[in-house]
Write a protein that binds this DNA or RNA. Sequence first.
RNA 1: CGGGGCGUAGCACAGCCUGGUAGUGCGCUCGCUUUGGGAGCGAGAGGUCGCAAGUUCGAAUCUUGCUGCCCCGACCA
Length: 439
Amino acid sequence: MRLSRYFLPTLKEDPKEAQIVSHRLMLRAGMIQQSSAGIYSWLPLGHKVLKNIERIVREEQNRAGALEILMPTLQPADLWRESGRYDDYGKEMLRIVDRHERDMLYGPTNEEQVTDIFRSHVRSYKNLPLNLYHIQWKFRDEVRPRFGIMRGREFLMKDAYSFDLDYEGAKTAYNNMFVAYLKTFARLGLKAIPLRAETGPIGGDLSHEFIVLADTGESEVFYHKNLLDLETPEGNDCSPEDLQAIVDEWTSFYAAADEMHNPETCDVAEADLVSRRGIEVGHIFHFGDKYSKTMGATVAGPDGKDVTVSMGSYGIGVSRLVGGIIEASHDDDGIIWPESVAPFKVGLINLKSGDAECDAACDSFYGKLTEAGVEVLYDDTAGRAGEKFAKMDLIGLPWQATIGPRGVKSGVVEVKNRATGEKQEVALSEALTLLAGRS
RNA sequence: CGGGGCGUAGCACAGCCUGGUAGUGCGCUCGCUUUGGGAGCGAGAGGUCGCAAGUUCGAAUCUUGCUGCCCCGACCA
């Protein structure tokens, strides 16, 4: 993509309304535009990142055997009356009345909707286990939206729902998602740690929050330092026993949010206990028959008798992750995208647009990179060197390739790694191998 | 929902106290000079001063109401 033909409205100065770093950088990098409090438009650069995150989340859900569906944003109130949540949910639920005076709502979540789908079509235990997910916009009318995209009112979320015959099955489904989440966050370039979360009246130990570590995080977390050294699991088709073993390993170390942490009862040695700040990006939860019971989601068991299915739900804040990744990965100059989610892999800087030799060298290099399947943002504008460098640093592409009059004479390009700042001058052909060779 | 703050050009702000018809920096357009880390000079474009009533000969400025946004707290993916 040539920058001259792209839509990238960057800002040199910090917008006043943005306090935290991800919000500031997203506005400055031209990724989003606020529409109203907690509601944003996604501009091309931001949209690419959002879609990249969504893609990885989707791939890992599919790999874990979850099936993608798409449920509506607008739901009938009657479904929520069945579960009792229409009255319980409170003002965070945006309620709408259609032209026929029917009560509707903009979905803050989809348990009722998915339970309705399930009960309409699944009759036999032979169809279990089942895990349905979708990636859809949600709306929660937060009293106080803040932190830009991190806590908006409208947000993109992946939510999966598992259906099993009994608790044992549900536990395997839960463990399956637990492991999928570890893989997902690792691919997103994040250090995410699972925290045991409050399970409320349902009880049990099947509820975890996944927290991304970032100095600017919203809440404080305490954990055993060895937790971060664990290997991310690999491979597919794990048996229930394998899944359980992985979950057991990851939950064997102490980890708690500040409201759950009690220094009195915490038995981790002080030297091993780490305290950092974090951002919640995922939550998995087993809730048993809470909805299946009230909404009549049953299947015939092996003995022919109806069984109320056991359910769980598994959320990942896709749009929130955009902010979360920035919080976890930036410096004073701007964003530092992990390659897996970067909007472009390489930023090509033409230091002297209009100079025949520079233009020719850049155009050719751009063509070859593109041909090799590398996504490039090519700054072919007439700007000055300093502003081009600053802009590239700001938008955080993993690699910068700079071609200027000095290097073009000797046929070299300067390749800079955004994360390390390391620069090297290499021949054009070598740079091509370097940049196209990496996946 | 309690408390606080702010709405003036695309962005950041001054002007308001003490009314007289709007300004600075950045950005944008054009020209010249520059050219390896957000350049210099010159010339331009761009504003119903959040909205509405009121006071006044006259309101960005004073009064009242409304509205939008931000921050702290309580609450949440």
